[in-house]
Each structure stands twice: as C-alpha cells, then as structure tokens.
Design a protein around this nucleic acid. Structure first.
Lengths: 191, 191
DNA sequence: ATTATAATAGACGCTGTGTTGAAGAACAAC
DNA sequence: GTTGTTCTTCAACACAGCGTCTATTATAAT
C-alpha cells in the first residue's frame, strides 16, 4: 500500500504511469483519458495498470494526495507559519516551492482536472489555520478561509499557467496586500 | 440552433434532459454520467439525445452558457455597477439572484462539474471589469480580477452548498469587507 | 540459485457509444 | 380538419473501452 516499500519494478511502473498521466493531461481532460491510452503512453500492459490503480481518476487522486503530503512536509521543514500575520517570507517560500514543481502543479490545478486539488489545499490551509481568525464564529471562519485560499490558489494557478514569469517575492507581496489590506490598498500601479 | 425558435417537442425534450442532468449531478460526477443513464432518467430515447447534443458534457456546457447569459441579462436589467466601488447593494442583488436559482448554481459550481463555470464567471467579471483596476498593468489586473472573482465565487459556492442560510445582505457585507479592506479589517466577530 | 512476486499476452463477456433507417406521432400552417 | 414537415421512437449495427482472468515469462530480493 505505501509507496516506499514496493519493489523496484513497482516503483518503475507507477512512475511511468504518473509521467504518462501528466503528459496526457496537458491535452485531454481527465475524463477523456482512457486506461488504454494511458498504458500505451506509459508503455505498460493494461493488466498491469489494474494491479495498482482502479482508474485514471484513482491514479490522479493518489498523485494529488502525495503532492499534498509533500507540500505539508515542506511547509513543516521550512517552519512556515500561516498563523499570526502570515509573513511575506513564508508565502514566498511556498510560491518558490510551487514554481519549482510548476509542471506538476500546473497539471493538478489546471482545467483538465477537477476542483478536488483546490479543496485539498483548502484543507491544508485550514489545518494550519490562521490564528487571527479564531475569534470568528465557525461559519464566518469557513467563509474567510475559503475566500483567502481560493483567491490565492487561483492566482497561483494563473501565475503557473503563464510560466511563472514574476518572481515569487513579487507575487507574495501582491497576495499579501490583497489578502490583508484588500483591493483598496492597491490603488494605482504600485510598483 | 437558438432555443426560442424550436418547436414544442424540442423544448420539452431539452427541458427533460436538463432536469435529468441536474438530478444526476447531485450524485455523480459529470464524467460518470452516461448518455444511457441520462436518457433513462429523462424518459427520452437515446437516439433523440444525439439529435440535440453530442455528449453529457456538451449539454452541461450549454446549460452553463445559458445561465451565464441569463445572469448577464439580469445584471443589465438591475443596472448593476461593478465599476467604481462596487456597492453592497449591487452585490446583494447578485447574491439574491444566486440564491433564487440555488439548485442550478449549486449544481454548476459544485464538485461534480469542472472549473469551466468558474472561468465563465471570471469572464463576466472581466467584461464588467472594475473601473478602479484600470490603472494597473495588464498582468496585475488579471491577477487582481482572478483573486477577487475566485474568492467570491468560492464563498458563494460554499454558501449555496450550505443551503444559503445567511441573508444576502450579510454575505454581501462580508464579501465587500474582505475584498476591499482585507482580512485585517475583520478582527473580532464583527456582528 | 532459489523463491517470491511483478509484468505480460491474450482472451472473455459486458456496457456504453454513436450512427442508421424505417415507422409512428406531434406540430405549425393553411 | 387536412397536409406536409419535423421530431421522436424503436431496433439494430459495428465499434471502443472496461474489468477480470489464466497461463506464461521476467526480474527483484534473499
């Protein structure tokens, strides 16, 4: 069940399938990715696929889960603090991480998958939930979190789709400003 | 091609199919909705379906387009001004409209469809684009719009999923505050 | 080298697809 | 109402992909 314990062949097979899926998702929506095409692209026998996954969806979900876990681990290592006022530095770290794995995130956040990964990220944000929100009632807190995460995730997605041209520091500053001070604080072309 | 010109039978058929799709989307992801099941649920012959649509996806896309057009028409009638500081009153109108058609929007924005409708709404917002953003460079403007629309749409989605319990006025105020003044303005349980 | 396990090839019935042609029913227009 | 048109139905079609299975081969772990 767990990744690290499998034998060499298994890891190879799964890696090939993951790569193939990312590749196919550049062009087709996940719903149009057939087991056949996936296995062809991976150079894997169709029977073998079923030894590991139930469907392309299943594979995609597991990839999301892995990426999410990896992200959480990274955030832990960097000791990123979403609590208290989120520092620009922390956000910048996160953005750098995203840019580093741009192809994967672009795939998982892109239009060819579904909302699920965005929800996954929302969940992460909730776990690390902003301390400053704890004074709100539950309903409001949920709305605020949703607003913040959805806004950020979608901006990040656009940033990645556009090739992540801007520097993480620049994006971090923009996000922080919008988040904490609102559009009102942005009057005029800031910089 | 256009809806209004079709004969009575056509309108009946399409209405039945739309209702059936909304129904099926309560439980299944769009990718799992087969033409067969859709036609069974609608009480329509499978051949007939292909006379009007290419696939369940196609049907869903057209529904989204219709809803979007209807929304734009409504916004026009209400003379909603997203330009200048968006008034709470305008936003409240929009939210009331959403609540009024809650079942449909919940379906179109929910987890069983894809990002497309959210993008559609982003497009609408861009057309009515906030005047106050025109001073920004193109890239920043896109990010700001993305942030604002994604945040709002996702909050609205959660609101609808939860049964739209809060009053539109309350939600409008919350959104306006988050949008223009940021999370910093929300300290403490406001009301 | 032995053993265990993974990957392959090929076949199976099944379900859904998209199209077709002929027959029937409902409609709009007169 | 009758007429001609258009829409819907029904049954059948070849075709794609699915998910499972068995026997066989290949390869990693010990």
């Amino acid at each position: 069940m767990r990744e690290g314990y499998a034998d060499q062949r298994v890891r190879m097979t799964q890696a090939l399938l993951k790569t193939a899926l990312v590749q196919l998702l550049q062009q087709n929506h996940i719903s149009k990715v057939s087991v056949r095409a996936l296995c062809d692209a991976a150079g894997i026998n169709r029977s073998t696929f079923y030894l590991h996954y139930q469907s392309p969806y299943d594979l995609l979900e597991r990839m999301k889960k892995e990426v999410a876990e990896d992200l959480v681990r990274y955030l832990g290592e960097q000791d990123v603090q979403l609590s208290k006022p989120m520092s620009q530095r922390s956000l910048q770290d996160i953005l750098s991480y995203f840019r580093q794995k741009a192809a994967l995130f672009r795939c998982l956040l892109g239009e060819n998958t579904d909302f699920a990964f965005q929800r996954e990220l929302t969940g992460i944000a909730q776990i690390m939930s902003l301390k400053s929100l704890q004074t709100f009632d539950a309903a409001t807190k949920l709305y605020v979190e949703t607003f913040a995460v959805a806004g950020c995730v979608n901006v990040i997605e656009r940033w990645l789709q556009g090739g992540a041209a801007e520097e993480p520091a620049h994006m971090a500053r923009l996000l922080i400003d919008m988040l904490f001070f609102g559009l009102g604080s942005l009057e005029g072309p800031g910089q």
